[in-house]
Write a protein that binds this DNA or RNA. Structure first.
Lengths: 341, 341
DNA sequence: CTGAAAGCGCTAACAC
DNA sequence: GTGTTAGCGCTTTCAG
């Protein structure tokens, strides 16, 4: 293992000069710098991050705390994060904290305390008070994506607007019997993603004078969740809506699968919109409010870099839904009047 | 930041004794050990991994090289890895090397060289000679899941057997016009997962005297890939098979979506089997050879731990398909005789 | 069984 | 501009 001393020797300079040339701190003449860099390349020298971290206190590594890897939204964000972090020369260490899992506890109690990172990115985490406390006590910058945590700088998409937009699209098509799948009855309407998307739906419905038709069915934010809810909602032909506003694309996909299985055509007999821009949208003729999770990942990394560099930075970024992408025409069913059952 | 010195002081011993007590190396009297451990707990002491690594050379961290995060199989494996690694007190740093991406090159050239890990786990990687060379030159144990690399200890599932099993299931149901989706024409039949699963299909067909019906359509190992191939395969009613053996569950799901969309019933007019135990299998009435990716993750971690501990370990583990899980009955279509078009 | 001292590989003051 | 020196926080010989 060649160390910086070897590089220095080969270049005919001292270790400190070699270090300066390589890390770019302090004055080095252009000639020396080149010789050192060449020497490093010849030897194939790469600095030991441990040794460097020990003295600088910085690790060139960030921790990512994420509840799922294997749900479309989270996987996509994670890939976005990895790309963005690489571009900034940071490694990424993964902390997978499935809600309620044993590993979640161990991570918060044990692993994070190692502080192997310069900063932390949390994705869609709703931390318990205890977890939040531990997060803060790490004394490293924390930035959150999705759901602003008290005192933590965050990036969120405008969940209310996004869901309102989706619902308005359905209303614009002439639907009135629109149900929302995804909100949880117990949620505070501003505190969680679930809740805010539900709020957007309600807002749209009431604005359109459809308040009496407001109806939501709770669901996991996942494809199987949407499927289960879909079966329930579509099951009874007498109460079946003509359109569904889904809290996420994954829910929407699950719902559509359920609809097809039930023999209800999609979208001719039923319109479904979701939020996120899922890669399956096309396959399922899904209409979607596009809000790329990858870009969300990029945005949160940018924010963290701002914090790390100590410069000024926004403390709360709200991503606005820019456009509604229609992957298929979703015509309103005939005979859907103002006076449904 | 409290250091080991503080712990030592509080316990009334020297740093070296404190270190021994905490890391379990060398002799410490039981009483002292307890006092040190208590002191550490009181202060909330956690050793700096950097400092420790610097001197021991071990990092308590493993690198995971994976081509996708956001494909079901890979996401599932990754979650399995994370769990298994945590259990062994290892951190996980993620290297996402999408084939052909710019980050892939940077990772192999730059990031891996930092050697922030005691070992490397690769998932379904087909490295170029150059990449393989770099991997080896890291001088850290490398274990591979899926596809044995020359000179690298590996865990694989028995792809040939798994695919044969799936195909035999269809044959057993009375099908003869069975096409395989997933193999790539260019593949060596033993070198890649694609290739081996194709081989298993061919084996089953020939064993059953159906060699003349062997037909495969190449596809990405993904849901959209399966969808595209499915549209193509099912599109023409004259050549349409009665059953499909898919190289993976994701392909199978895509195929089923295509089938439904084309108006071909599933499974009444078409049977599809896949490999892996996908969580969507139930939603899609998919028959599957179960081979949990999570367990594969666990297995590969066990193997790596064996290598790291220096003890004896198997150098190549083959996971055998244990069972075929039927999520729905897939009756053969009537009139499917020995003499298809 | 315990303590003193050396040093892992690097960067950051500080002199020159 | 460049070299010398002093650690970063820990583990590990090596005496005692």
């Amino acid at each position: 293992m060649s160390g910086i001393a070897d590089v220095a020797a080969l270049a005919g300079v001292s270790k400190s000069t070699a270090s300066r040339a390589l890390t770019g701190g302090g004055y080095v003449s252009e000639g020396t710098r080149q010789r050192v860099i060449d020497a490093a390349r010849v030897i194939g020298y790469v600095a030991s991050p441990n040794a460097a971290s020990l003295v600088t206190g910085r690790t060139k590594n960030v921790g990512v705390i994420i509840p799922f890897v294997n749900r479309w939204y989270f996987g996509e964000v994670l890939e976005g994060l990895e790309d963005a972090l690489l571009a900034c020369d940071y490694d990424l260490t993964l902390y997978n904290v499935r809600p309620g899992s044993a590993s979640r506890a161990r991570i918060f109690e044990h692993f994070l305390a190692r502080k192997r990172f310069d900063g932390i990115i949390t994705i869609g985490i709703e931390p318990s008070p205890d977890e939040l406390e531990r997060l803060v006590s790490l004394d490293r910058p924390v930035v959150a994506l999705g759901g602003q945590l008290p005192g933590i700088t965050s990036v969120s998409i405008d969940d209310v607007a996004v869901s309102r937009l989706a619902t308005e699209h359905l209303i614009g098509l002439g639907h009135s019997r629109i149900v929302h799948i995804g909100g949880e009855r117990t949620d505070d309407l501003t505190t969680s993603v679930h809740g805010r998307r539900l709020a957007g739906y309600i807002e749209a419905m009431e604005n359109a004078g459809l308040g009496e038709h407001v109806l939501y069915v709770p669901s996991d934010m996942s494809v199987p969740g949407g499927y289960a809810a879909g079966v329930q909602v579509i099951g009874d032909p007498r109460t079946r809506p003509t359109a569904i506003s889904a809290a996420s694309d994954e829910v929407a996909v699950g719902t559509i699968v359920a609809a097809r299985r039930t023999g209800v055509g999609v979208p001719s007999d039923l319109s479904v919109v979701g939020v996120d821009g899922h890669e399956y949208a096309e396959m399922f003729s899904l209409t979607t409010v596009e809000q790329s999770p990858r870009d969300q990942g990029t945005a949160i990394v940018e924010l963290l870099m701002g914090v790390l560099s100590g410069g000024p930075h926004e403390t709360e970024v709200l991503l606005h839904p820019t456009r509604l992408v229609v992957r298929s025409s979703t015509a309103p069913p005939r005979g859907d009047g103002a006076n449904p059952s």
